[in-house]
Simulated assay, not measured.
Amino acid sequence: MAPIRSILASRAVITSLSLLCCLALFLYTIDIEPGFHKNTLNNDDHNVNNNEHNGNNNNLDVNSNLLMPSHELKGVDGDMVYHGRPKRSTRHILEQSEGFYKRILRQRKQWLAEQMFGTSFACPHDIQRVGPLSDGGKWICGMSLYTEEPRSKCVIYSFGVNFETRFEGEMLDRTDCEIWAYDASVTQMGPETRGRPGVLFKPYFVGDRDYVDNKGIQWRTLRSLMKENGHDWIDILKVDIEGSEYATFNSIMDDFDVLPFSQLQIELHVDTPHTTFGNFLTWWEKLEAKGLRPFWTEVNLHPAIKFATPWASEYCFINIRGEKNILLRDYE
């Protein structure tokens, strides 16, 4: 053993092994690296471009730009620039993202076999998380449109607040938005919003029809609430109604030709008591047909605190329709 140990420890052997490793790495880099991105991305682009309409000639550009570090996109004056490419309008980004989304839909059959859903649409503005990092926080598309001067007045509807109002509280702190909140499971909102101007709360449940149940609780539809409040558009619709979202949104989609909100923050309860996979798929495709596109998702891990299997997911949708949708406008 001693002779072997002395050979392995010799400087000549160590130096030779190091040189061999460097040579192998160099040869690997020459053989693989220059063609890897070119071949992979070009083939992918050609497949996409041959199948999409002329308005989506390069569906992956928008995603590569959005993922590019911000310091590489900043121009001399701080404006966002695309090296060697023209500036893109909000509509152009949405069209590219729509082309990419259609590509994903063509792969859905394989995903459905695994019962998987994901996001594949790009919000054309900044995305910021508002509220807690845990249950109750939401990812907002275009948050800077509401916070930066001049601020845009906005309307938020919040269905299902319980006492978790940190999202609503932060929106009040950072924006000039009004909040219209509804939840019959509580008699008042949490401390972050209680008694503050710009907040209206009523102990109603939101559902698929207007009625009073046998407990004396009022159930209202979104259409009835908007008519009562004098609103024709909602900027942010936040929904956490413990499984009632499916019937409620079927009613909403039947009541409106164009869904009357810019974006939707919703917790989807996907366990068997609330829906089956087949019903969920039909419901999801109905949302898509109405112009909703998912730009963010995360599993609600709150049940894991008690070592239970997570059974709810947070989804964020942008509406790609609506003349009053500020997310569809261009900004200097």
Results as ranks from 00 to 15, higher is better:
Arg108His: 08
Arg108Thr: 07
Lys109Met: 07
Gln110Ile: 11
Gln110Gly: 14
Trp111Leu: 15
Trp111Thr: 11
Trp111Asp: 15
Trp111Gly: 10
Trp111Phe: 14
Trp111Pro: 00
Trp111Met: 15
Leu112His: 13
Leu112Tyr: 13
Leu112Gly: 12
Ala113Asp: 14
Glu114Gly: 05
Met116Ile: 15
Phe117Ala: 08
Phe117His: 09
Gly118Phe: 13
Thr119Gly: 14
Thr119Gln: 14
Ser120Asp: 13
Phe121Glu: 14
Phe121Thr: 11
Phe121Ala: 04
Phe121Tyr: 15
Phe121Leu: 06
Ala122Cys: 09
Cys123Pro: 03
Pro124Arg: 03
Pro124Leu: 04
Pro124Tyr: 02
His125Phe: 09
His125Gly: 01
Asp126Lys: 06
Asp126Pro: 10
Ile127His: 06
Arg129Cys: 03
Arg129Phe: 08
Val130Met: 14
Val130Cys: 12
Leu133His: 11
Leu133Ser: 12
Ser134His: 13
Ser134Phe: 14
Gly136Gln: 06
Trp139Arg: 12
Ile140His: 06
Ile140Arg: 02
Gly142Tyr: 05
Met143Trp: 15
Met143Gly: 09
Ser144Val: 05
Ser144Gly: 03
Ser144Asp: 13
Leu145Glu: 03
Tyr146Phe: 15
Tyr146Ser: 08
Thr147Cys: 04
Glu148Ala: 15
Glu148Asn: 15
Glu149Leu: 04
Arg151Tyr: 01
Arg151Gly: 01
Ser152Gly: 01
Lys153Glu: 13
Lys153Met: 06
Cys154Asn: 05
Val155Asp: 11
Val155Met: 03
Ile156Lys: 09
Ile156Glu: 08
Tyr157Asp: 00
Tyr157His: 06
Ser158Val: 02
Phe159His: 01
Val161Lys: 03
Val161Gln: 01
Asn162Gly: 12
Phe163Val: 10
Glu164Ala: 14
Glu164Thr: 12
Thr165Phe: 02
Arg166Pro: 00
Phe167Lys: 00
Gly169Tyr: 02
Glu170Gln: 15
Met171Glu: 01
Met171Arg: 06
Leu172Arg: 00
Asp173Ser: 13
Cys177Lys: 06
Cys177Ser: 05
Cys177Ala: 04
Ile179Val: 13
Trp180Lys: 12
Trp180Pro: 00
Trp180Cys: 05
Ala181His: 08
Asp183Glu: 06
Asp183Val: 05
Ala184Arg: 08
Ser185Ala: 10
Val186Gln: 06
Val186Trp: 04
Thr187Phe: 01
Met189Phe: 02
Met189Cys: 09
Met189Ala: 02
Pro191His: 03
Glu192Asp: 12
Glu192Gly: 02
Thr193Arg: 03
Gly195Lys: 04
Gly195Asp: 02
Arg196Phe: 01
Pro197His: 05
Pro197Asn: 09
Gly198Phe: 09
